[in-house]
Design a binder for these strands. Structure first.
Lengths: 327, 327
DNA sequence: GCCTCCTTTGCAATCGATTTCAATATATTT
DNA sequence: AAATATATTGAAATCGATTGCAAAGGAGGC
């Protein structure tokens, strides 16, 4: 079913059908009505492939997420997608896989679809392969990175100041009489490196010995296990900061199980203000890196850059501490 | 940059470039090498719009999710997407909005993109408008519904027997000496209607008076509030089944706060074996409706139906009870 | 040296839309 | 009534790929 079929049935030319479909002026009211009737009767819908080809634009937005299981990522992606759909775009949402190679590969896949803009959600996109892929295959369309940075003329960024957030957490705990503050990290990402660096800087400023677990499984059990290890090595610990809320949920559960009081014996601060932190028992205090706000900013930058391709912005968002039942 | 540009630079015709791009036989080794060199040097990537037009296929899979914030939905969508990407498809993942109108609208949007297959994730797709949209705009491509059913020749389904799951939960509690079992529901969906029906049937079989809250906000606080209402109306309640885990998390927290012992005073069973149920404190017992397995089945049905368009399957998956700390 | 066969390549049509330009029909002006 | 302006429509080119068919060139057989 093509516009030619519609044209024949309506007794007009394909040009006329096209003009009706696109609400172009200069079409007789009766003709328009007749064409619309046929279109409705036949449930015709125009091929986007053909439209894309002649219009030189796909009306698609690419959204690449580094880890779709991360609630903030997925909500951010959802929000961006939703907004663009309302504007008549179609958004391709993809999970980019864990390796740098696969991330770059996905950029290339989206390039073949001739997307109009690209959003990268997650700090792990910040790597050479992805940068190269953007430079090679998407040098001219607006790109925005949530929590990452590329020195490229068409790439904007919105970054959480995670270093500052972790420093704030350390300083808060220190000024509330915690002198043996531990830090538990799950894996090595640009984002986690910033958190660790913040921890080290603040610890040094306070003349505190760093007490750290550098890696553990990325789930509640991992958090519990790492907490046990931390306490074995540093029994004096009276506060723990976790690189991810979920670790803190597991950690606090473990501490309760071995008879510690929270926060009396050990204070706990997670990171990201995730849904888990809100519903955990005890409710987890957390460093809110404003990940949702970041995604909102990404959308705004992107929609501006689609209109004005020269528009590029680099924004840094300040985190805040959210106090619940573990501090 | 088109294949004609590549052809000119390589001193060959566009046909030759196309044949190299698609690994067609009958091309001289030297010619192939030269063309590939130019393609790499220029970072050329062929327009999918043009390919789609001539090949009469988009190589895209549509995935519509009814609520992207539901972890099971998003993990299912992710899994399906991932598998198809590995097969060379590109998947369009969209959140279909809450109204039936918007869901039908999304079906139409995907139809204009000429997707090769469609997966609908979530019971709320089961409505007349969506059925009509599929009939009108996607009458010939394979469609599969996760946890929903349409009587249409091209639509397969994989359904969780949620009625049975809830009956099992009631029966388990009853045979473990709970005689005043309550049920708390959040909102009215096909899926929740099946759960409620299961509760009513099992309660009747046991000659138990139904004790039910039919709706509440869809979050932990909502669960807490609804639990309070249930206890106000039926103070004798000694077990509660929740239509959604998150309600159970909020409910158990509330019960603990007012001094009840779990499960000694009141047993609790959530639904869906979500991440929340695993990390909550106490860990929530739950009706596992095998939502992840459902999505896996959707993928398998879809990949079979893409090869053989006449393939249609209707599958029912049996739920199991997962016992943790609240039963 | 001529004919056949095979390998390799190019020409041209095609997919389904959009858009420019020309043509026709009608209305308006003088 | 002739000339001009305006509204409406259609023909044909175009977007960037794919592919059937024809053709060119070289190898081998007689």
């Amino acid at each position: 079913m093509t516009i030619y079929d519609i044209a024949r049935q309506a007794g007009v030319s394909a040009s006329t059908v096209s003009r009706v479909l696109n609400n172009r002026p200069g079409i007789n009211g009766e003709t328009r009505k007749k064409v619309l009737r046929i279109i409705n009767e036949t449930n015709f819908s125009a091929s986007e492939a053909a439209r894309s080809l002649v219009n030189q634009t796909s009306n698609m937005i690419g959204i690449l997420v580094s880890d779709i299981r991360n609630q903030h990522h997925i909500e951010g992606a959802y929000m961006i997608s939703q907004h663009f759909v309302e504007k008549g775009y179609c958004s391709i949402l993809m999970n980019a896989g864990s390796s740098d190679e696969s991330k770059a590969e996905y950029v290339k896949i989206l390039a073949t679809r001739r997307i109009n803009a690209l959003a990268l959600i997650g700090s792990t996109f910040q790597c050479d392969l992805v940068k190269q892929a953007i430079e090679d295959y998407l040098p001219a369309i607006p790109v925005v990175v949530q929590n990452g940075y590329f020195d490229l003329p068409n790439v904007s960024s919105v970054i959480a100041d995670e270093l500052l957030g972790t420093m704030d957490a350390v300083n808060y705990l220190y000024t509330h009489n915690r002198k043996a503050i531990g830090f538990i990290n799950n894996n090595d990402t640009p984002s986690n490196r910033k958190k660790m660096k913040g921890y080290f800087i603040a610890a040094e400023e306070r003349n505190m010995k760093p007490r750290i677990i550098t890696s553990c499984p990325d789930d509640a059990e991992g958090g519990a296990m790492a907490t046990r290890h931390l306490l074995e090595e540093y029994p004096e610990v009276d506060a723990i900061i976790y690189a991810v809320d979920l670790l803190g949920v597991g950690g606090s559960r473990y501490l309760l199980d071995i008879g510690k009081k929270i926060p009396a014996d050990i204070a706990i601060i997670g990171t990201d203000n995730s849904p888990y932190s809100k519903i955990s028992n005890p409710r987890l205090s957390t460093i809110d890196n404003k990940l949702d706000e970041l995604s909102q900013d990404c959308y705004e930058i992107l929609s501006r850059a689609i209109i004005d391709p020269s528009y590029v912005e680099h924004k840094v968002v300040k985190p805040i501490l959210v106090h619940r039942e573990t501090t």
